[in-house]
């Protein structure tokens, strides 16, 4: 708890130092109102899919419609909050066989760049470093701004969705004894950010 408070304070301090892009607004992902989801989808034996999510995460982003290249985002996910509606499976997925949530309690994404699509400024590719299972790799998230504006409670929000596919072997998670369709996982993230 204290750690998270510290991290939030550090993030706030970092954000306040960004004065350079005066127009850019900083947003905090609305986990309090639970308008944010970090979901995964992975094949089961090649026969169907397991859908699940991480229930505990936090993040911030910076968004300026007039300077999209300066967009930034970061997200920290508590790997121990995995949920797929099956206690024993979730315990197994969080064990050392897969995510090893005890040793690697968080997964983080920190963006390094954003390239808006030429034909649609509300879509683009967010590049960044994803740290999962103790391994940091560059990933590209396909991002789309869904909508934004004043909310009914006096706040101002922007909402997005993002997706990517991860090869689990890239992150040192061994799926070699499972069929090929289980070797990767699709991540789907959607969230509203509250302007700070």
């Amino acid at each position: 708890m204290l750690k998270r408070t510290f991290a939030t304070a550090a993030t706030a301090l970092l954000l306040s130092g960004w004065g350079a892009s005066a127009m850019a607004a900083d947003y905090k992902i609305d986990t309090e109102g639970q308008h944010a989801f970090v979901q995964f989808k992975i094949s089961h034996l090649g026969y169907s899919y397991i859908l699940g999510e991480f229930r505990d995460f936090s993040g911030t982003f910076s968004y300026d419609p007039d300077n999209l290249d300066a967009s930034k985002a970061e997200l920290t996910v508590q790997t121990g909050s995995l949920y797929s509606n099956h206690a024993e499976r979730d315990k197994h997925l969080m064990s050392a066989d897969f995510l090893d949530a005890g040793t690697y309690p968080t997964a983080t994404f920190v963006s390094t760049g954003f390239t808006p699509d030429a034909d649609d400024p509300d879509e683009g590719t967010l590049t960044g470093d994803l740290t999962l299972h103790g391994v940091t790799k560059q990933v590209e998230l396909e991002v789309e701004r869904i909508g934004g504006g004043d909310d009914p409670w006096g706040g101002y929000r922007q909402g997005f969705e993002a997706q990517t596919r991860l090869e689990l072997a890239d992150y040192g998670i061994d799926m070699s004894s499972f069929p090929e369709p289980m070797h990767y996982v699709d991540l789907y993230i959607t969230f509203e950010g509250l302007r700070q």
Partner: peptide, 8 residues
């Protein structure tokens, strides 16, 4: 408590 951790 292991098996019932998620309400099943």
């Amino acid at each position: 408590l292991i098996s019932t951790a998620e309400g099943s």
